[in-house]
Design a protein around this nucleic acid. Structure first.
Length: 415
DNA sequence: TCTGGGGTCCTAGGACCC
DNA sequence: TCTGGGGTCCTAGGACCC
């Protein structure tokens, strides 16, 4: 029997911009951009001028002088994104959310209730439009990869169902950059081999792709080009890391610059780790220099941490050694902290450091206890009065926030 | 005139162990 | 003593995604 296409990929169109047009109908049909210094999202009217997400605001204005910048109703993005996902969950519990505005679903088990997958996709689109006022595109196919491509092809505000009988004909005419995992670098490497379409990739020998792109990426793309995608819907997956970063413009690579910034970043990251009882063992810092090159340093501890002070000190030490290794770099443009090798502590057990004293990789137990008490006090105050209620003194004020905290939170994965 | 902030996964070399 | 193979962990860098 012919296999059926039961995987859906649903993707809200130009999400932030659509929400702004929903909240202020006078913006409908006009080129708008969410953001200011940098474009966080652009409406389709703005995209027609070449405006793209991530683009500097100045550049966007050059491309489209009548572009309207809007501030960003971040709480509404979260609310409406959740609501759209919940519409999908009304059909099946097998939903894998991959970002605020995008999810996969497997409807194999609910067709007896709601009809064939194409009908379910239409119902989802209808309901999101009627109940939320937002356009959403849906792709339906036999695999996640193809469903995702189908939703891209369906945009804006469309539906594409890929019949398993003709899926390769559909897939092979499309350009390689529509594939998951093919970005600018891979695209140009493939182009050098004369591979522009997914069909051409499918005809390229596997060993050739592997030599060009590495064993993992090569084998993966070779399989995807034939629509062999073994991935299943994963309803909950835990985060592997948590981090925070801050662009600085151009600042001297000096202690008085990076210390307060790292304190602030450590505070953001560590309080998230504590809130979910997920301390981590590996601390990574990243420094970007003025020329946009960036360098990382990391340290893996014997015991996991989630204390702000501990994280901040380790990060500072890593940045010091990093800068010492690059004595010619006088200017930095970004600092980042990330914690990985996250562990899971259930219940009330937080990360009282258990290690022995004196060894570099083992946080001191006594110092750890004092900080644990201090962190708990900060967490409690914030739980009651909000994140801004307490912070690291002058630090909180000195950070120039190019992006509001509410926006940062939208991108945070559940730990 | 040089893209913000949150993530995932892969690679390659070296250390270390059996 | 020399040679060799395999596995795991750590570190640094890079491509990619939303």
């Amino acid at each position: 029997m012919e296999p059926t296409a039961t995987i859906l990929h649903a993707d809200l169109d130009a999400f932030y911009a659509s929400v702004e047009q929903l909240l202020d109908p006078s913006l409908c049909g006009k080129p708008i951009a969410v953001g200011g210094g940098v474009v966080l999202a652009a409406s389709y009217e703005a995209r027609a001028f070449g405006v793209r997400g991530g683009m500097p605001g100045r550049r966007a204005r050059e491309l489209c002088p009548q572009l309207i910048f809007v501030g960003g109703h971040f709480k509404d993005y979260q609310r409406l994104g959740d609501a759209a996902i919940n519409v999908i969950k009304d059909f099946t519990p097998l939903v894998e959310r991959i970002s605020i505005d995008e999810a996969f679903a497997d409807v194999a088990g609910c067709t007896h209730l709601f009809g064939p997958p194409a009908d379910i996709a239409m119902a989802i689109r209808r309901r999101v439009r009627a109940e939320l006022g937002l356009p959403i595109s849906v792709g339906v196919a036999r695999t996640k990869h193809l469903a995702k491509i189908a939703s891209q092809v369906a945009k804006p505000d469309g539906l594409v169902v890929v019949d398993p009988a003709t899926e390769l004909e559909f897939l092979h005419d499309l350009p390689v950059e529509l594939m998951w995992g093919v970005g600018p670098v891979t695209k140009s490497r493939l182009a050098e081999m004369g591979v522009l379409t997914i069909g051409q990739m499918a005809k390229t020998p596997g060993w050739s792709l592997e030599r060009l792109l590495g064993p993992a990426a090569g084998a993966k793309l070779a399989a995807l080009a034939w629509n062999r995608d073994p991935r299943e819907i994963k309803t909950h997956r835990r985060a592997q890391s948590a981090g925070a970063q801050s662009a600085l413009g151009k600042k001297p690579a000096e202690e008085w610059v990076f210390r307060p910034t790292l304190r602030h970043l450590a505070d953001r990251v560590a309080s998230r780790l504590r809130a979910k009882s997920r301390p981590g063992r590996t601390v990574t810092v990243r420094v970007r220099f003025a020329d946009l090159r960036s360098v990382t340093r990391s340290l893996t501890l014997d015991a996991p941490i989630s204390a702000t002070g501990m994280l901040a000190e380790i990060a500072e030490e890593l940045v010091r050694t990093l800068l010492a290794d690059h004595p010619d770099e006088k200017t930095i443009s970004l600092l980042a902290i990330s914690v990985s090798h996250l562990e899971t502590h259930t219940g009330l057990q937080l990360d009282l450091p258990l290690g022995l004293e004196d060894e570099k990789r083992r946080p001191s137990a006594k110092k750890g206890m004092a900080r644990w008490v201090a962190d708990r006090a900060v967490d409690t105050i914030r739980a009651r009065f909000g994140w801004q209620a307490v912070g690291y003194g002058s630090v909180a004020l000195e950070i120039s926030r190019s992006v509001p905290d509410e926006f940062r939170e939208l991108a945070e994965k559940d730990l």
